[in-house]
Design a binder for these strands. Sequence first.
DNA 1: TTGAAAGCGCTACCAC
DNA 2: GTGGTAGCGCTTTCAA
Lengths: 354, 354
Amino acid sequence: MTAPENPPQAPLPAESRAAVTLHDVAREAGVSLATASRSLNGSTRKVAEEYRQRVLAAAERLNYTPNLSAQAVARGSTRTVALLVADIADPYFSTIASGVGAAADEAQLLVTMAATERDPERELELVRTMRGQRPRVMILASSRRTDDPLAPALRAELEAFEQTGGRVVVISTNDLNFRTVLLDNAAGARDLALALADRGYRHVAVLAAPEGLVTSEDRLRGFTEGLAARGIELDPAAVVRTGFTRDGGYEGMQRLLAMGREIDLVFAVNDVMAVGALSAVRDAGLTPGVDIALAGFDDIPTVRDVTPPLSTVAIPLAEVGRRALAMALDEPAAGSHEPVATTVVLRASTPHRH
Amino acid sequence: MTAPENPPQAPLPAESRAAVTLHDVAREAGVSLATASRSLNGSTRKVAEEYRQRVLAAAERLNYTPNLSAQAVARGSTRTVALLVADIADPYFSTIASGVGAAADEAQLLVTMAATERDPERELELVRTMRGQRPRVMILASSRRTDDPLAPALRAELEAFEQTGGRVVVISTNDLNFRTVLLDNAAGARDLALALADRGYRHVAVLAAPEGLVTSEDRLRGFTEGLAARGIELDPAAVVRTGFTRDGGYEGMQRLLAMGREIDLVFAVNDVMAVGALSAVRDAGLTPGVDIALAGFDDIPTVRDVTPPLSTVAIPLAEVGRRALAMALDEPAAGSHEPVATTVVLRASTPHRH
DNA sequence: TTGAAAGCGCTACCAC
DNA sequence: GTGGTAGCGCTTTCAA
């Protein structure tokens, strides 16, 4: 008794009338296209107040919204900023995105966002696509690789974009040679290492991302240097490579524990990894901060709420996002091209030894 | 001895030549505009293979990228989806955004995103602006209010958008009467309450958002009903209203503790609040999960890593994002219009009582 | 199959 | 100040 299948979904709006155009508004107001344009979107007011009001009223009545694409074509420029991040669900990137969004809002700009998933091919592809939007600004917060064979192609693409009047801002490293919101990852990690060495730690291990991620390498190097400055050598065998994620941190810490080394401190190159590592320590029956000290990098909100709260290096991520856009827009407030100030924050996860 | 100030920044690209246009490609390839268009972006191939290759080569040589705005104007449609969230830095929204982004990527769509900051005026304003983009789809994940006086205006705006062929999908509640990815917040909260009652809790308090946030109210109501079904009455005085954020949860819990009530369980209407509450409990010298049990809602990643891990109601947030877009695109995979399945997850923060 | 040309919605220049 | 109108870069008829 199979009744004849109903169409899966009624095709919704029977009549899909075209959107209201400026032409409609002009007609409704009884003025010319030009006057309508001037009263609605024109910059320098040279429209008689009466006409102006008529147009505004007509626009309101018709619920007119200017077609941004048409404006873009006519003006030869858009009010768009393109933002590339590695992974929007990661608090590091979502906080930066939130800063970019806030600044864009103030500048009356719209944000188009895409995730590279740390895949250089995808990144290049996305840059090409977004270039089609002709955005005013392109912000790259996607994490860079040291050995990316596609880097020259990416640079060429970005240069072509700047050549046509666009602005590129890269966040973190300036290996691409564009305007950069520099994060001095190495210095931050060095400072952290010094502070932790001063708290008495000597047997140190590191949870790092797979080789080739610039951010991870910089932090690892800085940390190593900091330890060295206090006469502590970081055994290369104590550097575990793992995913740049919470689960990566968890898994890496398990491997580290399985090695049976004497360890009193583990530095994870970012906070999400550190948080995962913390859970791994606890799940192994040990007490983080007592049996093994832990530190991360970034100061994401979560690290205050885990137990014990994690020591880390704070970066003003939302501010970084804001600054990236300001820099692109040549705002003086963008400040210097000096690295963003980074702050060591010591918490209970790295108590004084003895 | 103040030397004359250098110009703060050399004005970058001396010559800002215009972007390569299809016209340039056609000329370079020695074919007409029409043929160039057909070979590059045309759907049905009816171009001689030789010409086609010539055009492709020319485009590549010139590093041509089609102007998306111009295409939009000519075609009368875009490949854009507009996404509105309350706060992109909040893991709830960033995870949804990540799902929308993944689905958009598969559908070859670009995502424009903006944050409403839970301000209805901003929301309305943003919808108007984004409507100017003429996106194919508009997804609203911004949290709704029960008493929003601007709701009719918002609905009118969205209806106008659908009238012109756009698709609207609302996430969470369907108070606006558009396609909806329904989250049965009340049912989830009820199930949670039942499960917790069965674990023996009797003296319950709730940390809720300020009155009027639909999501918060639904969860509060569902939770109350669940308790009632087990013969437990929730004292209205035990419902603390506070910010819908981590800090809100912290502060609300402090107030709750200061009240001196007998409490064995606190339900926070979302996880970020619960996480804040957990820290407040600990900072008050109590042990979460022992002195006071805690539960949240959403199952954000963080709740697994705090101590003790938090009981909560899991929502497949990334999937919700994907589904929202699928639904807008009339994909059969969008599945039913039934609520998204929600799962109670009991963890160590709510152990059995006695 | 190809190319000329008429739009798409809007801006901005140029007369009046 | 106002209104034609020539574009902006592209798609898509319509003839050839």
